[in-house]
Design a protein around this nucleic acid. Structure first.
Lengths: 203, 203
DNA sequence: ACCCGTTTTAATCAATTGTTTAAATCATTT
DNA sequence: AAATGATTTAAACAATTGATTAAAACGGGT
């Protein structure tokens, strides 16, 4: 027997779904209320405004995405293992929420749009000792010379973009929806091999 | 002395600028008209509707992005050179229009949004003989086994995403705007090395 | 049964939206 | 200069937007 959600939670869940799919400018409060099966006025009653509700959804989306990073990077494994693990977990996670990367990136691009507030997450990565690990691996020659920006964009590019570009590439190459998951699995293998052998070349 | 643009062109250029920056749902016809310095009614007078104007902007954006691909792939150089050249030209082009990838991807994601109409471009790539070149390079063992999807997503990921994620990564790592171009130049080197050595490993 | 704070509802608000209209202006031809 | 068609303008249209209101319904405590 399914537990009934509170009205506030129903609206929040509906907002997540609708904002993720359509973005802030692409939907209305009425649409969110209808998705939640509640009265329009309740959106403002519980969340003050559309913008405030959006902000709550956005910040939690960011945190969900960053959590994987923090969780892996503070663990007690080698840098190479961390990166391999990150790619695996990132693909698995985004497969469950394919709209998440596009949502975050496009809303960060919107004028007067979402802002990264919670730098706490980044600081947790910084304090995980992973940067020392990087420096060490580079000094020993195990890892190539590459800065934090390069490694970040390299990983994010190859983990996020395949999902972001689904509609584009699929319609360009004529890929059916049911084949997408298989393609993504195959692509992850390529990405892992490519990035790991590039960052950690066999001497 | 600057040549005066026709009203129709002024509106079209303004529409490109505004749509690229804010997307279809993120702007109004009045905003476009104001950017063009023209009366609101002229938008509909020349382009029938906001949607029709958008469609025109979107299709031309797609064509601009695809033109590089066609132009390089039909040229008479080796596959490896084509890929290297593609990365160079893609970075140079997108540096001039940094909003283009995000615009196309996010509008293709929008419900009832933009659709890829012009498959002519893809057919020109298909007819360029580049697929035969791929098959040949793989049979000779010069290139690794990877399908068209894999190679497409690999290239697009590493050429588009760095620009798409500018706001995200910049604010995450605290990168100032004036350093972005330098970072991007450095990143292109990594991307080129990484992709080329992965696809064409030295035996 | 009554009270009282919380939640929910339907109705309404002013502002903004894309689009249309009808009149005014312009440019070209006769 | 008169006439014609194309262009431009200001005004208005109905529909939709985020948000607010006041009254109704609900629920726990006495």
């Amino acid at each position: 027997m399914s537990e009934e959600l509170s009205t506030e939670l129903k609206i929040l869940e509906a907002a997540k779904k609708v904002f993720l799919a359509k973005g802030f400018s692409g939907c209305t409060t009425r649409e969110i209320a209808h998705e939640a099966g509640e009265n329009v006025a309740l959106v403002n009653y519980y969340f003050r405004s559309k913008a405030a509700l959006f902000d709550q959804v956005f910040q939690s989306a960011i945190e969900e995405l960053m959590y994987i990073l923090v969780d892996i990077f503070k663990s007690d494994i080698s840098l190479k293992e961390k990166i391999a693990e990150f790619i695996d977990r990132e693909y698995a996670f985004i497969s469950s929420f394919p709209g998440l990367p596009m949502f975050i990136l496009s809303e960060l691009n919107r004028e007067d749009g979402a802002q990264l507030k919670n730098k706490q997450m980044f600081e947790m990565v910084a304090n995980s000792g992973v940067f020392d690990q990087m420096k060490e691996a580079q000094e020993s020659g195990e890892m190539i010379e590459i800065d934090l920006y390069g490694i970040t964009v390299l990983l994010m590019s190859n983990c996020h973009y395949p999902f972001i570009s689904k509609n584009f590439v699929s319609s360009l190459l004529g890929v059916a929806d049911e084949h997408f998951e298989t393609l993504m699995d195959a692509h992850k293998i390529h990405v892992k091999n490519m990035i790991l052998t590039y960052l950690f070349p066999i001497k």
